[in-house]
Amino acid sequence: VTVHVNRYTYHFDNPEEAEKFAREMAKRLNMTVEIHGNTLKVE
Score class of each variant (00 low, 15 high):
V1K: 04
V1S: 05
V1W: 15
V1D: 01
V1F: 15
V1E: 01
V1T: 09
V1H: 08
T2C: 13
T2H: 14
T2L: 08
T2D: 10
T2K: 08
V3I: 03
V3F: 00
V3Y: 00
V3T: 01
H4F: 04
H4S: 08
H4G: 02
H4V: 14
H4R: 10
H4P: 01
H4K: 11
V5L: 09
V5F: 10
V5R: 02
N6E: 12
N6G: 15
R7V: 06
R7Y: 11
R7S: 13
R7E: 14
R7H: 14
Y8S: 11
Y8A: 12
Y8I: 13
Y8F: 13
Y8V: 13
Y8C: 15
T9W: 10
T9E: 11
T9A: 10
T9L: 13
T9N: 06
T9C: 13
Y10S: 01
Y10A: 02
Y10N: 01
Y10L: 04
H11N: 06
H11P: 03
H11V: 10
H11L: 09
H11W: 14
F12A: 00
F12Q: 00
F12K: 00
F12W: 02
F12H: 00
F12V: 00
F12C: 05
D13A: 10
D13C: 14
D13P: 07
D13M: 08
N14F: 07
N14K: 07
N14W: 04
N14T: 11
P15Y: 15
P15A: 13
P15H: 14
P15D: 05
P15K: 14
P15L: 15
E16F: 11
E16L: 10
E16S: 09
E16C: 10
E16A: 11
E17H: 07
E17M: 08
E17D: 13
E17V: 08
A18K: 00
A18L: 02
A18P: 00
E19A: 08
E19G: 05
E19K: 08
E19L: 14
E19H: 13
K20P: 01
K20Y: 09
K20S: 11
K20A: 12
K20I: 13
K20M: 10
F21N: 00
F21I: 01
F21T: 00
A22P: 00
A22Y: 02
A22V: 04
A22F: 02
R23A: 08
R23L: 09
R23H: 12
R23M: 11
R23V: 09
E24H: 09
E24V: 07
E24N: 09
M25E: 07
M25P: 00
M25G: 00
M25Y: 04
A26K: 03
A26F: 02
A26Q: 03
A26P: 01
A26R: 04
A26C: 04
K27G: 07
K27P: 01
K27V: 09
K27L: 11
K27E: 10
R28I: 12
R28V: 09
R28G: 05
R28K: 13
L29R: 04
L29T: 05
N30E: 05
N30T: 03
N30M: 06
N30R: 07
N30C: 13
N30F: 04
N30K: 08
M31R: 04
M31V: 10
M31H: 08
M31C: 12
T32Y: 08
T32I: 14
T32F: 08
T32A: 08
V33R: 00
V33M: 05
V33E: 01
V33I: 09
V33H: 01
V33F: 04
V33Q: 00
E34D: 06
E34V: 15
E34M: 13
I35D: 03
I35W: 14
I35H: 09
I35K: 13
I35L: 06
H36G: 04
H36W: 09
H36M: 10
G37W: 03
G37L: 06
G37R: 03
G37V: 05
N38R: 05
N38M: 04
N38E: 05
N38W: 01
N38I: 03
T39N: 11
T39V: 14
T39F: 09
T39S: 12
T39L: 11
T39K: 09
L40Q: 04
L40M: 13
L40K: 04
L40S: 06
L40F: 07
L40T: 06
K41A: 09
K41R: 14
K41Y: 15
K41G: 06
K41I: 15
K41M: 13
K41V: 15
V42A: 03
V42N: 04
E43W: 11
E43Y: 14
E43C: 15
E43T: 15
E43A: 14
